[in-house]
Design a protein around this nucleic acid. Structure first.
Lengths: 290, 290
DNA sequence: TCAGAATGTAGTAGTTTTAAATAAATAATG
DNA sequence: CATTATTTATTTAAAACTACTACATTCTGA
């Protein structure tokens, strides 16, 4: 039952952009006027927007209905909602001559936007299944290579506090060895943005052949996705322009947070005491909080 | 008349909550009606909201102006904007009996909220300074202990692609040794959530005594903050209830992204070719993207 | 030229805002 | 302590504005 309910708060601005081609002359003028400065558009009256787009008021109204709003005010509300998440810099990439303040904003906002997308795409059922496996695990291993290695390490840190044997590996050889030596009751969490690294897929297959449970934090339509027991799909943004993984890792980390929280909750309240003890063990190493 | 002002894109819902006490009877009724279901409030007309709050229309209008809106429609827009970021679960923590879907949403939304806060708090000037130091660095070292170790590792991965000698250390002893062996032209980036770990502060002092530049990604009002050449302040949320660092790491990573992007941009366009080459070198290890 | 779609005009219904009037609350005075 | 004055809060009612509907006009392509 994937059945993710009605994409209520889907991003309106992106919607407008993607439908730009299929609009007729006047409506495109409206679309362009809005995209020129979306946040200003939320403050316009229908008359003001009509003037800005150089069309008549009913055209604006028709445009709004075209995006399944009941009318102009409703459209403005939806536009406003999509702005907070949907970035003031409408899906704009970092430009070479941006100021520091500008590109810093762009980066943070695009990260926020991808988190929001991930939120809508995450499947609670798959998460619940993954959490169940983790709770019952005899031993947990996090595998991540390259850019995903830090994510795996982070997961290790988090789960270490749970008193379960947990390790992370960033090296294909070690991963292969661990996978080969695994058995029923072991859980291996594989973190990969593309899900297309050959080694990774091999390793997942080996682990499963040995009876281990493999949880994938990756793209669901990938060879790795197919090889996993459960896939936590992370259809992350493309990150195409910049040649570095950016938001994907952050989404992966957030998924780790969710898993860790799920385990904590399911373990029950007494367990919180254990976490507190660990936290307090760190106190002597710190300066007092003035 | 309260001296509240110009908190432009500060979270309106939080604002309303925090000012609840300082409102008079009727206006509080309005506030409560809105908080009862903020997203419904965005769809109400002034008459409907007045009825829901059991007051007259002008009262609602005055209420809106009290929150520095020009009127009711403007207020609704701002409310709508703050809903996207400002979480449906208005500042709520994860509860033991939340469903998976619920707490997953809460975690993602609170992460989004802290990113947005961080965005407003980040100082572009400090960022620019840090980027300048990084560009001129002979060598870069990222130091992070415990929960910040993965962040340091991630930074190493990112900066490795820049062709600068870069390392990361998660171990206090190694950090101390590297700091002791550092000299002018070396840049050390210290990542710490609290900025109060004794060791960390020591290490920063040693490094500076040797002429190295120390960039701190940490709390600015901390001993570590004082010991740094530049501080990138990250007044992260408290994460108090759950005994694990959550959003703080993510903000740290985002700051790393910003620094890396800044370095890329300042290095100029020809440098993008270099990044592309690295990316392409990974192709043979992958399954084709069908 | 004509059908059909697209766009615009003008009037109407609906909503918000303003301004003046009333009610409530607080302070001051006998 | 009661009564009145004064301020503050709230509403009623009218004015201003905004968005919507129905119809007229203008385009477009056959």
């Amino acid at each position: 039952m994937a059945a993710h309910q009605a994409n209520r708060d889907d991003n309106l601005i992106e919607d407008i952009q993607s439908r730009l081609d299929s609009l007729n002359k006047s409506e495109r003028k409206v679309a362009e006027a809005i995209l020129r400065d979306p946040s200003a558009a939320t403050r316009y009256s229908i008359a003001a927007l009509a003037r800005a787009a150089d069309v008549s008021e009913p055209t604006v109204n028709r445009f709004c209905r075209g995006f399944s709003a009941t009318g102009f005010p409703d459209f403005k509300i939806r536009l406003a909602q999509s702005i907070a998440t949907g970035t003031p810099y409408v899906g704009q990439n970092v430009e070479p001559d941006d100021t520091v303040a500008e590109f810093a904003d762009k980066i943070v906002l695009s990260t926020i936007a991808s988190l929001d997308k991930a939120r809508q795409a995450l499947d609670p059922k798959a998460l619940a299944t993954a959490i169940d496996y983790l709770i019952q695990a005899k031993q947990i291993n996090f595998f991540g290579m390259g850019g995903s290695a830090p994510v795996a390490l982070d997961a290790q840190h988090k789960f270490f506090r749970f008193n379960i044997p947990v390790m992370s590996y960033d090296d294909a050889l070690m991963q292969r060895m661990v996978a080969a030596g695994s058995s029923t009751g072991d859980v291996i969490v594989m973190i990969s943005y593309t899900g297309r690294t050959r080694e990774t897929v091999d390793i997942a297959r080996i682990a499963r052949a040995n009876g281990a449970t493999v949880i994938g934090i990756t793209n669901p339509d990938s060879p790795l996705g197919d090889a996993c027991t459960v896939v936590l799909e992370v259809t992350a943004p493309e990150d195409t322009e910049v040649y570095m993984p950016m938001s994907s890792r952050i989404i992966h980390l957030t998924v780790i947070d969710i898993l860790a929280t799920g385990v904590t909750l399911k373990r029950g309240a007494d367990f919180l005491g254990h976490l507190k003890k660990i936290k307090e063990s760190l106190k002597p190493t710190r300066f007092p909080s003035e």
